[in-house]
Design a binder for these strands. Structure first.
Lengths: 111, 111
DNA sequence: GGAGACATATGTGGTTGACATATATGTGTT
DNA sequence: AACACATATATGTCAACCACATATGTCTCC
């Protein structure tokens, strides 16, 4: 029984990308603590990245210059910035509701 | 684009029932502001109530004594109280993660 | 007796995410 | 060179969850 914010990975991803371009595998690890799980599911993350690219939220290109694996580097577009803002507004609102819920519980169930 | 806590109606419902027994239609209205929508979907709420009853989280009986419609009165069981506690723990944890997210955003995007 | 609120309930289809699987390259060890 | 393991990207599948539609009956008020 674990409470989850639906699609929370998406805003977390946008925030991570706001800090600078990166690729999927690294993002997954950077996201883990924000989202609050051991590790984000890679499959779904890559799917999300492609889907966001189709919507113009991120853009990408292959980076085969840096050593190691060829990586697809993603970065936020301007629309991505706007979407992040919208997420933040919505999450703030949700935080308010959540706080109200917890306050009500605590009032009825004093420590 | 609206952020949602998955199954948030469930803990809200349990909290409402902790305050005293009630029936579906009334609960739906009492829940609306906690959940943060104009009105909770009745169909899903009744389905949830029955499902919770099957799991021993709530118990119910028909009340045809009070005036008006026959209403199915629900009340929390002991297991229901425990489930509410579990929800609260989980939601508190989620609140922490959410606050961390918003703090990070605000740090990177000063007003 | 008709309109609209009250009260409970089932049907359905799209979205989401957990989990499984596939493929290929890079790195380090023996 | 062979092997294991980490890195990196990607698709398949299925159950859960929820928005929306629909159904049925009663009660109240004009």
């Amino acid at each position: 029984m674990t409470a989850r914010v639906e699609r929370f990975v998406e805003p977390a991803l946008l925030l991570a990308l706001q800090a600078g371009r990166s690729h999927g595998y690294e993002l997954a690890e950077r996201l883990a603590d924000v989202v609050g799980v051991e590790s984000v599911d890679y499959g779904n993350l890559y799917r999300l990245l492609r889907s966001l690219e189709q919507e113009g939220i991120v853009s990408s290109e292959w980076d085969d210059e840096s050593e190691g694996h060829a990586k697809r580097q993603y970065q936020l577009t301007e629309n991505g910035e706007l979407l992040l803002e919208a997420w933040v507004d919505s999450l703030r609102h949700m935080d308010t509701r959540l706080a109200a819920f917890l306050r009500r519980y605590d009032e009825r169930n004093p420590a």
